[in-house]
């Protein structure tokens, strides 16, 4: 179709009322035609304004509660899973370049860490140590051989709460280290720590200890006392003392790496 024909159906396309064949034609055309692309953008802005002509209803207060609570649950920065929201269609034609950063979890994670670094700039005393630690964490979390486990809805009725947290564990054999990231983990009694263990084909191997902050969040480098060659998973036992010779076998969470 030429520009004239495309202009005739641009508005219907912007309103979502073009049929499939017309929609294809518009998308194909504006991919190569800047002027029609501009026209389409204007039509889309106009169409978007139509939303404001819906009678406005205040969203129920319970909706905000639901959304914020779910967002907190999903607040596992950097490791944010893609989620299953395939039903949401982005209203732009494909020509604008892909809007998503598919498979960019590592990049998002790096952006997050960069933000952490930026936020620390005002705190000169701890800056250097923290930056070094975050650098190590980044190196492990984005290592080519990194393997991941996601623990969801970790609950522990034996501690204060109720909490239902999430944790991600990443392990790089090449780096010889792991990273634990957690959110809303069950809080620990004073002086106690969580200890993670690598599950191997023989005995569990201690992976390191970590302590969530007051909100149950953590971002911690896990440096095991000795190197693990072939871990198949990670477990965190109920016992909170840390430093045990071996876990009691009573796991708070236990899972295999996603590629196992």
């Amino acid at each position: 179709m030429d520009c004239q024909e495309i202009r005739e159906i641009l508005d219907a396309y912007a309103l979502g009322a073009a049929d499939a064949r017309e929609a294809k034609a518009v998308e194909r055309h504006v991919a190569d035609c800047v002027r029609c692309w501009d026209e389409l953008t204007k039509a889309q802005r106009t169409a978007a304004l139509l939303a404001l002509t819906a009678p406005m209803q205040e969203a129920p207060a319970s909706l905000e509660t639901r959304i914020m609570s779910a967002a907190r649950g999903a607040a596992r920065a950097g490791f944010s899973p893609a989620g299953s929201f395939g039903g949401v269609r982005i209203g732009w034609p494909a020509t604008a370049g892909s809007v998503g950063l598919v498979g960019a979890a590592a990049l998002v994670f790096a952006v997050f860490l960069q933000a952490q670094v930026n936020d620390l700039e005002g705190d000169r005393d701890t800056l250097e140590d923290r930056v070094v630690a975050l650098g190590s964490i980044t190196r492990v979390a984005t290592a080519p051989d990194v393997r991941t486990i996601s623990f969801e809805e970790v609950t522990d009725t034996t501690t204060t709460g109720p909490f239902s947290g999430d944790a991600d564990y990443r392990w790089s054999r090449d780096e010889g280290k792991g990273v634990i990231f957690c959110d809303s983990m069950p809080l620990l009694p004073e002086g106690e720590v969580y200890e993670a263990w690598y599950v191997t084909l023989s005995e569990p191997v201690p992976a390191g200890t970590f302590t969530p902050d007051d909100a149950g969040g953590c971002l911690h480098l896990m440096e095991p006392e000795w190197q693990v060659a072939a871990a198949t998973g990670v477990g965190i036992p109920h016992e909170k003392a840390g430093g045990a010779r071996r876990p009691t076998g009573d796991w708070l969470v236990l899972a295999q790496f996603e590629d196992e």
Binding site: L63, A71, P81, V88, G100
Partner: peptide
């Protein structure tokens, strides 16, 4: 509405 907002939260790069 919840689905739409949570998608934004989980995938801000969509915008």
């Amino acid at each position: 509405s919840q689905e739409i907002f949570l998608r934004i939260w989980r995938k801000p790069e969509s915008f």
